[in-house]
C-alpha cells in the first residue's frame, strides 16, 4: 500500500482528503504544518505528499524546499493543494520541486486526475 502524507492546517480538509485518498488505496498520515510534515518525513519518507501552502509555523513552500534538500527527499511525489491559484504561485511551487498542483476547491475527480497524472495510480 502506498503512503500519503496529508499536510493541511484545516482538520476538515485533512478529513476530506483522507477519505478520498483512502478510497484510492493510500495509507494516510497527517500533519498540521510544514514542521510536523518534515519531522514525519525524517522518520519515514512517504510515497506522496498532498501539501497546503499557507500554514502556521512552516508553510508548504518552505517545507518543500527543505524536503528536497533532505536525504531521500527527492523521492516523494508532492502535489500542492492550495487556494493560491495564480500563475506566480504555481510557477514558484513547480520551481521548488512540486510535481503537480491542485487549486482549491477540489473534489474526488480532481485528486484522482492529478494523482493519475503523476503516476501514483
Amino acid at each position: 500500500m502506498k503512503q500519503c502524507l496529508v499536510v493541511d492546517d484545516s482538520s476538515v480538509i485533512r478529513k476530506v482528503a483522507r477519505r478520498i485518498l483512502e478510497d484510492m488505496n493510500f495509507e494516510i498520515t497527517e500533519a498540521e504544518d510544514g514542521q510536523q510534515a518534515l519531522d514525519a518525513c525524517r522518520k519515514s519518507m512517504p510515497d506522496a505528499i498532498l501539501l497546503d501552502w499557507n500554514m502556521p509555523v512552516m508553510d508548504g513552500l518552505e517545507f518543500l524546499t527543505s524536503l528536497r534538500a533532505e536525504d531521500g527527499g527527492e523521492n516523494p511525489i508532492v502535489v500542492f493543494c492550495t487556494t493560491e491559484n495564480d500563475v506566480a504561485h504555481i510557477a514558484r511551487a513547480i520551481r521548488a520541486g512540486a510535481n503537480e498542483y491542485i487549486m482549491k476547491p477540489f473534489d474526488r475527480e480532481i485528486v484522482e486526475a492529478k494523482f493519475q497524472e503523476v503516476g501514483l495510480i
Binding site: 500563475v87 504555481i90 513547480i94 475527480e109 480532481i110 486526475a113 497524472e117
Partner: peptide, 11 residues
C-alpha cells in the same frame, strides 16, 4: 483545467 491537464501544460 484540472481534469486531465498537467499543471505544466496549464502554465
Amino acid at each position: 483545467v484540472q481534469r486531465g491537464l498537467p499543471i505544466q501544460m496549464l502554465l
